[in-house]
């Protein structure tokens, strides 16, 4: 009973519990849900939203948001595929893709910190810009990567033992960013920036500098995620990855990253991601009608937002009282 109480008292505990229930439910009701093959495919499905969710969580914790991350991923994949197609060795192409991601993040940082626009609105505008631009540079066609680039394809579809390489990369990134968030001074200032801007300013925290770094970081991670998807699919297209930001935000918020900033961590982000992916995979595998799946996905997000809301209110009450 004490354990149950302890679990339900923590936001992360509740999400963990729900994730376990979801896994158990589908494990019992759906044949093959817990098979090695399905777990492998779930791990692969986690990679795109997971990699974007890392940068997105950092941004959310700092009180910012980038709705265009999915389109940055799409652009990243296209840049990578085009550079490889132009004859560049794939490591160089990947490096230049990261640079392109930094530039995209930098543009958003400029709009937010120099021009003074809201991140929400600026990134919505950038969605349209990236979408149109991706159509222009590709003539709306898929860019196929030659099968000569087998080593590059490993990044997207290779495995080490049981674990897909993109999943290993994503988990490694989560660990690194988790340490940065939790154990470094820079990480603490991110929480401070998102938690209370006025207090952060009074403490001498340079909010603009921090959010600029986070936007650039987010752009680079999104572009990397796009390149990984291109490696998995052997191509890049203007329609690829575009829902990445929504999925990443859902996973992060479900995992306890506060939508209004100041709270959250990478462990929660991972659990939120696992919940969403297991949930979607289970719904598909169960053969449930698609439209019901959409309703239930919405309910899941609604539940997460409610948990976030009530936690925030409880915290506020505790501070006041």
């Amino acid at each position: 009973m004490k354990l149950v109480k302890k679990i339900t008292q923590s936001k992360l505990g509740v999400i963990c519990l729900v994730t376990i229930l979801v896994v158990l439910f589908f494990g019992v009701t759906t044949t093959g849900f817990l098979s090695g093959n399905n777990l492998n495919s779930i791990m692969i499905s986690m990679c795109l939203p997971g990699t974007i969710a890392i940068g997105m969580s950092m941004l959310l914790i700092s009180g910012e948001i980038d709705l265009s991350a999915g389109y940055e991923a799409c652009m990243g994949g296209l840049v990578c595929a085009m550079l490889i197609g132009a004859g560049l060795p794939w490591p160089v192409a990947l490096l230049l893709t990261l640079v392109a991601g930094c530039i995209m993040g930098g543009i958003l940082a400029f709009l937010v910190n120099k021009v003074g626009l809201f991140g929400f609105i600026s990134s919505m505008a950038m969605i349209s810009v990236y979408n149109g631009f991706s159509m222009i540079i590709t003539k709306a066609q898929t860019i196929t990567i030659s099968t000569d680039n087998a080593a590059f394809f490993k990044i997207g579809a290779g495995s080490i033992w049981f674990f897909p390489i993109p999943f290993i990369i994503m988990v490694a990134l989560m660990v690194v960013y988790g340490v940065i968030l939790y154990k470094t001074e820079f990480g603490r200032t991110i929480y401070m920036t998102g938690g209370n801007r006025a207090a952060a300013r009074l403490c001498g925290v340079n909010r603009k500098k921090i959010t600029t770094i986070l936007y650039i970081n987010n752009g680079a991670l999104a572009a990397f995620a796009g390149a990984v998807v291109a490696a998995r699919m052997h191509n890049a297209s203007p329609s690829a990855c575009t829902t990445g930001a929504t999925d990443a935000i859902t996973a992060a918020v479900l995992g306890g990253v506060a939508f209004r900033g100041g709270d959250g961590n990478m462990v929660g982000c991972f659990i939120g991601l696992a919940l969403v992916t297991f949930f979607n995979s289970g719904l598909t595998a169960s053969g449930l009608q698609a439209y019901w799946q959409i309703v239930i996905q919405g309910l899941l997000l609604f539940a997460a937002l409610c948990i976030d809301f009530f936690n925030a209110r409880a915290r506020q009450k505790a501070l006041e009282g």
């Binding site: 849900f33 093959n37 399905n38 495919s41 191509n235 690829a240 829902t243 598909t284 439209y291 799946q293």
Partner: peptide, 26 residues
């Protein structure tokens, strides 16, 4: 059904196929 993911791209095709095939080993 791809409407659950809301997009027409290769990742959705990959995910749906892998989810259904790996969950039906029979």
């Amino acid at each position: 059904d791809g409407v659950t993911a809301g997009s027409l791209n290769a990742e959705v095709g990959y995910d749906l196929t892998s989810q259904i095939i790996s969950a039906n080993p029979q």
